[in-house]
Write a protein that binds this DNA or RNA. Structure first.
Lengths: 356, 356
DNA sequence: GTGAAAGCGCTAACAG
DNA sequence: CTGTTAGCGCTTTCAC
């Protein structure tokens, strides 16, 4: 069985062919020593003869042996790996991951991302279950992305990003959702819009609550009456948003603008508008929230509120690393600023319609 | 740099966790049964009295117990988790991950992504080492993203995405790099360009080799002489590309267009061009390869070759799942089509310069 | 129906 | 210097 290997290798990879994993015992047997000795060699412990080290190392190289992370972490309590638990990998979490990966370099930690595969809808508290399965073994600490339940004690250092609740006692990273939502709504108001629909997020998320609050506050500060009929729940998700957007746009007195609580639902809203024969932004202005890369890819490019997602991932990592090093956090709740990103999906309300 | 902070915390965060992991023994003790019985309850084995099941289950719920994935996978050989091994999480791999996450739904498998944290530059064959550490335990099979060494036998089912070599014997997913590179080069030629620079990828990657070949082939088919002086190695990376782009653009007889082997180096090229006072696309046309979301975000938006990254991730998952189910693959090498995406970074060569 | 015991791959005492 | 032993958390015979 031939294996193509890079340059400086001129031998064969033997023994692995059957598919059996090479274990420390295989190495020990072939080197004619005990497993303990092999372990010492692997971990560079003192008290092994140079000749023995060389012989064992030769066998290790020959077999391409690498200690099982799992077995090792069952024994040791420390693994030097940080876990990031996400319910799914979509644009939002993917951006966080990019930032986290950037921040982890040079820390000596490695990254394991565990995705529940989107199968979290039915079970609240998925992050607790997954953390239970991993912590203590495999990971030294974890970052929880949009966890629904943030308990105080998880048995391992934990940092939450954009959690459900305010995050009682758990170090948290989020962005200024309230201000961002105000910015979005003010932008629409500034363009002359008065009938502004709101596609709300998942009611159980703190971020969703704050975005709705920001919407209402901006309305009231501008002296615009809040009309509960203009609010629908999109749950940050595509399917729910589709239905909600349809309800909002099908009515005769439809809003002239919609603030969608995240980019995904904003994009869906634009889709629905087009389906209904409405032109965006001529007939309907749409603004989102998140500024995921995809928001710039659609036509018209989405005007939205930027959340510094990569930075949030970076900050979460540095907080967790600090915790793992036994330090204490100067700040247990970091809120990063949001800002308006103007693109093409919002237009001024035509004068003839103002006050109509 | 204004960071909004909400510091309502006035104590220390405990560095050492008090809440130790709850193990199967804690459950057993509290329920007054043996660990074996608890195990049977967890795994829904027959031979446990209904009353006992209820009592144990109550304790499990109360304690929030969840079996350690690590301990379990050390015992069982099957874990129902698929691993994706990436050297780093950047736009390219992030897109693949999105596709993989999409495809994994409904398969019953969960996803673990292992990132080497970019610390792979020094060690060739990182994927072999990481696979060794994980396979057999923790994961049932793996997807290797741009592995440098693709051995025939890894001890676990493996699918490679965009590997170094053609991938001897290992099921592989990639895209049509040759055709894509031809499309890119032909596009520039069609715009009137003749002096077309090429910022090559990592020389050890098959994809890079094919893209260079496509570039040369398109040139030759159009009757344009190939000038080795117009080729620099960007290694798909930012730092290397910066240097290479500078060399290419600083010369007096600089190319009027550059085909960069991936979007990252194309974006870097545009940066360098701007630094040198060149306007893109007026003074220099730039085309990339990959179509990562970021390519549409820059100004000018990047004209590029689309690689269906998410789809590649999906296909890799479905191939691996098929393998894990004991099936055999209809195709062991899937090549997905590439296509030209025209945006703003390429312009026709001004007539006055043609033939200059 | 239930529990004692062995062992997955590994490391850390402790003997020899 | 090296090997023997115990045990991390869990599952699985196999007695009772």
């Amino acid at each position: 069985l031939s294996i193509v290997v890079d340059n400086d290798f001129d031998g064969y990879y033997p023994a692995v062919e059957t598919g059996a994993r090479v274990t420390i015992r295989d190495v020990a047997a072939l080197a004619g020593v005990s497993v303990a000795t092999v372990s010492k060699v692997i971990n560079a412990r003192y008290g092994v003869a140079a000749a023995t080290v060389a012989r064992v190392q030769a066998v290790i190289d020959e077999l391409g042996y690498e200690a099982s992370l799992v077995a090792r972490s069952l024994r040791n309590h420390r693994t030097n790996v940080i876990g990031i638990l996400v319910s799914d990998i979509e644009p939002f979490s993917a951006e966080l991951l990019k930032g986290a990966a950037k921040a982890i370099k040079g820390t000596g930690y490695e990254l394991v991302i565990y995705s529940a595969g989107g199968m979290t809808g039915d079970h609240v508290g998925w992050e607790r279950r997954y953390l239970s399965r991993l912590s203590g073994t495999l990971i030294d600490g974890a970052i929880l992305v949009t966890p629904t339940v943030v308990g105080a004690s998880f048995g391992a250092p934990v940092v939450a990003v954009d959690p459900h609740t305010g995050g009682d006692g758990v170090p948290t990273v989020d962005s200024d959702n309230l201000r961002g939502a105000q910015l979005a709504t003010e932008h629409l108001i500034g363009l002359g819009h008065r009938r502004i629909g709101f596609l709300a997020g998942r009611p159980d998320l703190e971020s969703a609550r704050l975005r709705e609050l920001g919407y209402q506050r901006a309305l009231s500060e501008a002296g615009v009456d809040f009309d509960p009929d203009l609010v629908r729940i999109g749950s940050y998700a595509q399917v729910a948003s589709q239905q909600a957007a349809r309800e909002l746009l099908a009515r005769s007195d439809r809003p002239t603008a919609v603030f969608a609580a995240n980019d995904l639902s904003a994009i869906t809203t634009i889709d629905v508008a087009l389906t209904l024969g409405l032109s965006v932004p001529a007939d309907l202005s749409v603004i989102g929230f998140d500024n995921i890369p995809e928001s710039a890819l659609i036509t018209p490019a989405l005007t939205t509120i930027d959340q510094p997602l990569q930075l949030m991932g970076q900050r979460a990592i540095s907080m967790l690393v600090e915790l793992l090093r036994g330090g204490s956090l100067a700040l247990t709740h970091v809120t990063l600023p949001t800002r308006l990103v103007v693109r093409q999906s919002c237009a001024p309300l035509p004068r003839v319609m103002i006050g109509a």
